[in-house]
């Protein structure tokens, strides 16, 4: 079981200075210089495009500001109070969490099933893989406009298809009915993103040695047992990494919602990102928008850190402990 893919945790520093041959000090200096030279551009970009905007957002969130003119109207934490007590925002957080959970619950089994199927040798394999992956490659805006047209109430292709089997769509359409808009959005997101899951899982499957499933088969395991007991557990790290990406993407979801519903109808699909854009560019409450963006950042950061700490970490710990026990 040495083939278990254990994610490495950073590079181990070289052995202590004492053991080094003469000239180590000069080498140290050179290494330090190399580190500085090679990381400086990345650090600079990170500072300018990540750290600076975050700090600015925090600054804006403490003012009442219309988007132009000087920052003069300091209001302290009032914007945060306004955001956190706003039903539209708390609703938006709920929608984001629903999308996080629904994406993983739907795309995980679906993506796994498709990946396992496509991993078998069969005719048209390459074409099938492409078809599954194409939606992910499409620009989100283009995919959104296409779905918006397909879902047109009374006039779209989807209702025409429903019509041929004698069904009628809802009066407000799938995107216009508050109770249906979010589920419809989840369906479109699944169509869009399951391709990424499949691609990652397929890549992960390449790392699962054939010998293991052959051995399992010799031991009398059925195809199903082989997948369930051998292949899927070995895919664990890939699955957990995909779930992480999916979670972060769902928390920051904006484009598809903006194109399909704009956060409506009746705020039924508002996400944190559409909320802050609406408050910012539409209503010009940039202080409120900045406060919402800081809240979004904190939520995303917290979830990311917790996930790293408890899910990805346990993953590696498990691998260490169970190795050789079973």
């Amino acid at each position: 079981m040495t083939a278990l893919p254990v994610p490495s945790r950073g590079t181990t520093p070289p052995a202590g200075r004492d053991t080094r041959p003469a000239g180590g000090r000069r080498r140290d200096w050179r290494m330090a210089a190399e580190i500085v030279v090679f990381t400086a551009p990345a650090l600079l970009l990170f500072a300018v495009f990540v750290v600076w905007p975050i700090l600015r957002a925090v600054q804006f969130s403490l003012y009442r500001w219309k988007g132009f003119g000087p920052l003069v109207d300091f209001v302290g934490l009032q914007n945060y109070v306004a955001v956190l007590t706003d039903e539209v925002f708390t609703g938006a957080v709920g929608h984001n969490l629903i999308i996080v959970v629904a994406s993983i619950l739907i795309q995980l089994p679906l993506g796994l099933a498709i990946a396992l199927l496509l991993n078998r040798r069969m005719r048209g394999q390459g074409m099938l893989r492409t078809i599954i992956f194409v939606p992910y490659v499409l620009s989100e805006v283009i995919a959104g406009v296409v779905w918006f047209q397909l879902l047109q109430p009374g006039r779209g292709v989807i209702e025409a298809m429903l019509g041929t089997v004698g069904l009628a769509g809802p009066f407000q359409g799938f995107l216009g009915t508050p109770s249906l808009a979010l589920p419809t959005l989840v369906v479109v997101l699944t169509w869009k993103y399951v391709g990424l899951a499949v691609l990652l899982f397929l890549a992960g499957l390449q790392g699962v040695p054939d010998e293991l499933s052959e051995a399992a088969q010799i031991d009398g395991a059925s195809w199903w047992q082989t997948q369930w007991r051998v292949t899927i557990p070995l895919l664990g790290p890939t699955i957990r990494m995909w779930a992480f990406l999916s979670m972060i993407g769902s928390l920051q979801l904006f484009d598809m919602v903006w194109i399909l519903t704009g956060g409506g109808p009746a705020n039924a699909t508002t996400t944190m990102a559409t909320f802050l854009v609406n408050e910012g560019t539409k209503r010009q409450n940039y202080g409120i928008a900045a406060a919402a963006s800081v809240v979004l950042f904190v939520i995303a950061l917290l979830m990311a850190v917790l996930y790293q700490r408890f899910v990805l970490r346990r993953d590696t710990a498990d691998a260490d402990v169970t190795r050789g026990v079973r």
């Binding site: 047109q152 109430p153 009066f171 995107l175 216009g176 009915t177 508050p178 519903t261």
Partner: peptide, 12 residues
């Protein structure tokens, strides 16, 4: 309430 509006007006 008199329902004079087009189908799907909430998302139009």
């Amino acid at each position: 309430a008199a329902e004079p509006f087009n189908r799907g007006f909430l998302s139009t």
